[in-house]
């Protein structure tokens, strides 16, 4: 999976947000605000990632437990999927 290029990361009044532009904006009905961890994950998603590679990256960077990291990744990924902010390659 990777970022849908129709979504942008921007900072508004000190908070990081992901917003859609173009066609995605017409269909989008929510908004995602990010903390430092999810902003880092979003950055990684500029290139192709899996839950496993994202989890490993969090463990390496934040020295958190594998299980906690995976939970964070899965929760963030499901939010992104819900609004179509990431695309999955056909397997």
């Amino acid at each position: 999976m990777k970022q849908n290029s129709a979504f942008l990361l921007r900072e508004v009044a000190g908070t990081l947000v992901i917003v859609p532009v173009g066609k995605a904006a017409a269909e989008f009905s929510g908004m995602i605000t990010l903390n430092a961890t999810s902003a880092y994950l979003w950055q990684l998603l500029e290139t192709e990632q899996t839950v496993q590679t994202l989890t490993d990256a969090l463990v390496a960077r934040y020295e958190v437990q594998q299980s906690k990291a995976q939970q964070d990744v899965e929760s963030f990924v499901s939010k992104l999927k819900l609004v179509g902010a990431i695309t999955e390659d056909a397997q």
């Binding site: 942008l8 921007r10 508004v12 009044a13 000190g14 908070t15 947000v17 917003v19 532009v21 173009g22 066609k23 904006a25 017409a26 989008f28 929510g30 908004m31 605000t33």
Partner: peptide, 27 residues
């Protein structure tokens, strides 16, 4: 706090814009 205010403001303001420049301006 801004983290909670942003989604509420955006959802009740100009949101469905097709051009990136317009979204950048709105933000």
């Amino acid at each position: 706090p801004s983290k909670e205010a942003i989604p509420r403001f955006m959802s009740q303001s100009l949101w469905r814009v097709s051009q990136q420049a317009q979204m950048e301006k709105q933000l």
